[in-house]
Design a protein around this nucleic acid. Structure first.
Length: 488
RNA sequence: GGUCUCUUCGUCUAGUCUGGUCAGGACGUCAGGUUUUCAUCCUGGUAACUCGGGUUCAAAUCCCGGAGAGACUACCA
């Protein structure tokens, strides 16, 4: 039997990283089994309708390199793949359940969902079960004839237990009496997720249901639904949640306050889609060896359910940075250069002609593209800095020695006419030799004078080359005067 | 409150099924080295089996109990 998995996002307008990881695993599992990966849009909540939200889903999957074999945009034999277009189907199946006695009409007024925080602890769940469960057929008919609004609820047995097996969490059993009569069909005729996912997964021939572990506790109700219909229960693969670290050290479900959590936001911050995918693949799954950097193709090859973890993982932006840096460094230079240029803000400035050189310096030094502008800022203007910067133990640099070295440097620069990296390097190597000083100590003061920074993309001669002879002299002179003024 | 789930370095994890290397790797961090500083790169250090019992010659691993954390408990998904 061909494996079929699905990703069933709700069109909310953005793709949460946890959802994307679910999509990724569903995709990887399908691919690793030579199966099909289906995209289904779960838009049964009309109140939550967001313009263009499905477009965000398509674009995200496209950039993330996750390709569905069937879906609203690509078609397939099991359509339609948008739940709002399947409205009639759910009604039909809900009615079947009523016939079978596994569901019932409920005419109660809508329970307002206000102040869930202060909600009184619910006593016995059956006290909230309304009397509609036991309405006679005649009463139901009368209400229906009167046109009373209704919902259809699942009739959960008050006795017995329900058991299912999950490929990650193992066998889980619950007492049916702890389950409530959830709503299957809303008063607007739309199904709830709880009902639609069961009907659609069955009708679409989904063999393995992959989703977050937040559905673990409601799964017994779905099992009961399958049993009521007489359908074969699919395989389940529930995934551990992704948490974020709170300022106080505790963890909770990853959300905005932890930082960027949508795929788009991460991409905008300068993370590569393949790096994001690589990183989230490792949150909750392990290849069980020491490889960490993967391409999508490699992931498809090595993915296995056995590597899935049960416990929740904390999203670590530092490690994401590292993974991203690995991918950046592995990029072909041309591609990096082009992409970095877009972020750099260099277009139209004096640096544009020297972009290639800059890009070379940048590629091994950044974690994400958004860092680029701030790393280049000093090339346009030296920000005020502390004179202490000239003091460096390792290079035996003091304010006094810096004055001497800066003077020597200025002399040397004045004598250089050919302004390219090689000439500059050679010239300073010679200055070092002539003055019996090491290269490092020689270049330290000038880099401070020219950048006001201890860490810059590239070394001192690189900076000289980039800003040009005139500006170099200007900055060196300014640095010299700065130290002198401090020494009085 | 009820139900379900989870628990190895600060973080991601290997090891658990098939008890038996000083519990391994990565990020971070610290130190040293290379490098025209920083970074990259290299080397080394740091740091963990939630607790308590039991079984056993031997327990992270098997059994029992406690504790903590998370999810669900919507006409959201």
């Amino acid at each position: 039997m061909t494996v079929r998995t699905r990703f069933a996002p709700s069109p909310t307008g953005y793709m949460h990283i946890g959802n994307l990881r679910t999509a990724l695993y569903a995709y990887l599992f399908a691919k690793s089994q030579n199966g099909k990966f289906v995209l289904r849009i779960e838009d049964t909540d009309q109140k939550r309708y967001v313009e263009d939200a499905t477009r965000v889903i398509y674009e995200t999957l496209e950039t993330a390199n996750i390709h569905h074999d069937e879906g609203p945009d690509v078609g397939g034999d099991y359509g339609p793949y948008v739940q709002s277009q399947r409205k009639a189907i759910y009604k039909e199946y809900a009615l079947k359940l009523i016939e079978k006695g596994a569901a019932y009409y409920c005419f109660c007024a809508k329970t307002e969902d206000e102040a869930p925080e202060d909600e009184e602890p619910k006593e016995n769940p059956f006290e909230s079960t309304c009397h509609c469960r036991d309405l006679s057929p005649e009463e139901v008919q009368r209400n229906l004839a009167e046109g009373k609004p209704y919902v259809i609820r699942q009739r959960v047995p008050h006795e017995g237990t329900t058991t299912f097996n999950d490929m990650v969490y193992g066998e889980i059993t619950v007492e049916n009496e702890t389950l409530d009569d959830q709503i299957l069909l809303k008063s607007d005729g739309m199904p709830t997720y709880n009902f639609a996912n069961v009907v659609d997964d069955y009708l679409m021939g989904i063999t393995h249901i992959i989703r977050g572990s937040e559905y673990l506790s409601s799964n017994p109700k779905y099992i009961l639904l399958y049993q009521a219909f007489g359908w074969e229960v699919p395989c389940y693969i529930h995934l551990p949640l992704i948490n974020g670290k709170n300022p106080d050290g505790t963890v909770s479900k990853l959300s905005k306050r932890h930082g960027a959590v949508s795929f788009q936001a991460l991409v905008e911050e300068g993370y590569l889609p393949e790096a994001i995918i690589n990183y989230i693949a490792l949150l909750g799954w392990s290849p069980k060896n020491e490889h960490e950097i993967f391409s999508m193709d490699e992931l498809c090859e090595v993915f296995s359910v056995a590597g899935l973890h049960k416990s929740p993982a904390v999203f670590d932006y530092q490690k994401l940075d590292w993974v991203n840096a690995q991918h950046i460094q592995a990029m072909p230079f041309e591609q990096f250069s082009k992409m970095a240029f877009e972020y750099s803000g260099v277009k139209g400035t004096f640096l544009e002609p020297k972009w290639n050189k800059l890009a070379t310096l940048l590629q091994p030094r950044i974690n994400k593209f958004s860092e680029i502008p701030s790393k280049l800022q000093f090339l346009f203007e030296v920000a005020p800095y502390d004179v202490e910067m000239y003091i460096n133990k390792k290079n035996k640099s003091t304010l006094e020695s810096s004055i001497d070295i800066l003077k020597t440097t200025i002399d040397a620069v004045n004598r250089i006419d050919k302004w390219d990296e090689e000439t500059l390097s050679e010239a300073f190597a010679k200055v070092a030799a002539d003055n019996n000083i090491k290269y490092g100590p020689l270049m330290w003061p000038s880099r401070i004078a020219m950048s006001g920074l201890q860490a810059t993309p590239g070394g001192s001669t690189d900076i000289m080359y980039l800003i040009g002879k005139e500006e170099t002299l200007k900055r060196l002179q300014a640095g010299l005067e700065f130290i002198q003024s401090k020494l009085g």
